[in-house]
Amino acid sequence: MDAIFLIEQLLNGLGYGLMLFLLAAGLTLVFGIMDTMNLAHGSLYMVGAYIAAQVHERSGSFVGAVFMAMAATVVIAFVLEMLVVRRIYSRGHLAQVIATFGIILIADDLVKAIWGPAPMLASTPAALAGPVQLLAELPYPAYRLAMLAVGLLVALGLYLLVNHTRIGMLVRAGASNRAMAECMGVRVDGVFSFIFALGAALAALAGAMMGPISAVQIGMGEAILIPALVVIVIGGIGSIRGAFVAALLVGLVDTAGRAFLPPALRAVLPPALAADLGPALAGIAMYVLMAAVLILKPAGLFPARA
């Protein structure tokens, strides 16, 4: 285990963390403002990945594919909000979990009907296919660097939007105390529709970017939903800043667990036991982190509500 490997894994962890942040940002705002638990967020991510892979294959333009995926997913989210989500705002979390679980079931079958049950191959854009020589002995895939850049840019954009614009002020007001914001004349419903669409666009962006480095398949939304929920709980529900910090933490802990735990265990334990324990501990690391944070800070690292 040398320094080069360490830097490489750190970068991988940051990239994964930033993609988690794209998902968690929408999830945490929807949750924070309207107290709505939206399990279908993962389905938007899946739809984004499928559309991007399809358009990229047909047109050959990756940037165009990403924007197409975002636009189409925003339209889908708009319909979803009109038909279902708007009617369950005021209901309990359980009703929201059940209804959005229903959306997951419908979305999975729809995707299967359109693109078939087999995983889809999403190719890396040709311009970014090669490695970049970061240091003399550290080649790093250009595509993963582009992911880092996109993630950081979006995070910066969200920071500016939430902290330095009028709509951002309304969003923060809604998240910290919705009833009071409504009393002061903020149309929280309208703000929410905007946030829901923004969240969908970011989920689609994450799906489109993750497509080429992971499998584009049915169930990919459910698989990434759980880490995204872990992120918003660690960060404190409703807090963008919390989601950012927690996403990077979870990304790093998860990647580091997978990369460093197995060799570390092999050094101290008998090989058979280490081979069994390594992957288990790596899978568990993120949940241990969440449990530890919740035991110490029951409302997450950066509680949005006063």
């Binding site: 009703a95 209804a99 079931l105 999975d108 079958d109 009907a113």
Partner: peptide, 16 residues
Amino acid sequence: DYWRWPLGLLLILIVF
């Protein structure tokens, strides 16, 4: 083969 979506629809209808 598409047995999930009717169940999903049922869930939404029951919640409503």
